[in-house]
Simulated assay, not measured.
Amino acid sequence: MMLGFGIMFEKNPPKNINGVYGYRTSMSMKNQDIWNFAHQYCGKVWRTWGLMILIVSIFFTIISYFLGEAVQGIICSGLVVVQTIILIVSIIPVEKALKRTFDKNGKKYN
């Protein structure tokens, strides 16, 4: 999911600020410039992190296949938890980049 949306956001972010779809935080929704920047930056983060998560997930899924159903369930559940945590933590670098690039009123630093 992160890899797919990362590529999509980086190349073709949602055109308009909306409360339904996209990277939606109070800072990212202040104006269109911030919205566009947030999606490009978030897209890069999600693309990179998503590829790493995909590789790790495939590795552990293949290993769990040989360890039996009980272990498969534990490993797959663990992967879902880790993937969700990484998705949530990805907000941190995006928000830091927004704060480095824009002031609290939404104006871009020179």
Results as ranks from 00 to 15, higher is better:
residue 9 F to E: 06
residue 9 F to A: 08
residue 10 E to Q: 12
residue 13 P to S: 12
residue 13 P to N: 12
residue 19 G to F: 02
residue 19 G to E: 07
residue 19 G to Q: 04
residue 21 Y to Q: 09
residue 22 G to L: 08
residue 23 Y to W: 15
residue 24 R to G: 11
residue 26 S to V: 07
residue 26 S to T: 12
residue 27 M to H: 11
residue 27 M to A: 14
residue 29 M to I: 12
residue 31 N to D: 08
residue 31 N to S: 08
residue 32 Q to L: 13
residue 33 D to Q: 15
residue 33 D to I: 04
residue 36 N to P: 01
residue 37 F to N: 09
residue 38 A to G: 06
residue 39 H to P: 00
residue 39 H to T: 10
residue 41 Y to I: 10
residue 42 C to L: 05
residue 43 G to A: 09
residue 44 K to F: 05
residue 45 V to T: 10
residue 45 V to F: 02
residue 47 R to N: 10
residue 48 T to M: 09
residue 49 W to Q: 14
residue 53 I to P: 01
residue 54 L to H: 01
residue 56 V to S: 04
residue 57 S to V: 03
residue 59 F to V: 15
residue 60 F to N: 10
residue 60 F to E: 08
residue 62 I to K: 02
residue 64 S to V: 01
residue 64 S to R: 03
residue 64 S to K: 02
residue 65 Y to F: 14
residue 68 G to C: 00
residue 69 E to A: 00
residue 70 A to V: 08
residue 71 V to Q: 02
residue 74 I to E: 02
residue 74 I to S: 00
residue 76 C to H: 15
residue 77 S to C: 14
residue 80 V to E: 06
residue 81 V to F: 14
residue 82 V to M: 10
residue 85 I to L: 15
residue 87 L to E: 03
residue 87 L to T: 15
residue 89 V to C: 05
residue 91 I to F: 13
residue 92 I to Q: 04
residue 93 P to D: 00
residue 95 E to M: 05
residue 96 K to V: 02
residue 97 A to S: 14
residue 97 A to F: 07
residue 97 A to K: 14
residue 100 R to K: 15
residue 100 R to F: 04
residue 102 F to E: 09
residue 105 N to W: 00
residue 106 G to C: 06
residue 106 G to E: 07
residue 107 K to T: 08
residue 108 K to G: 06
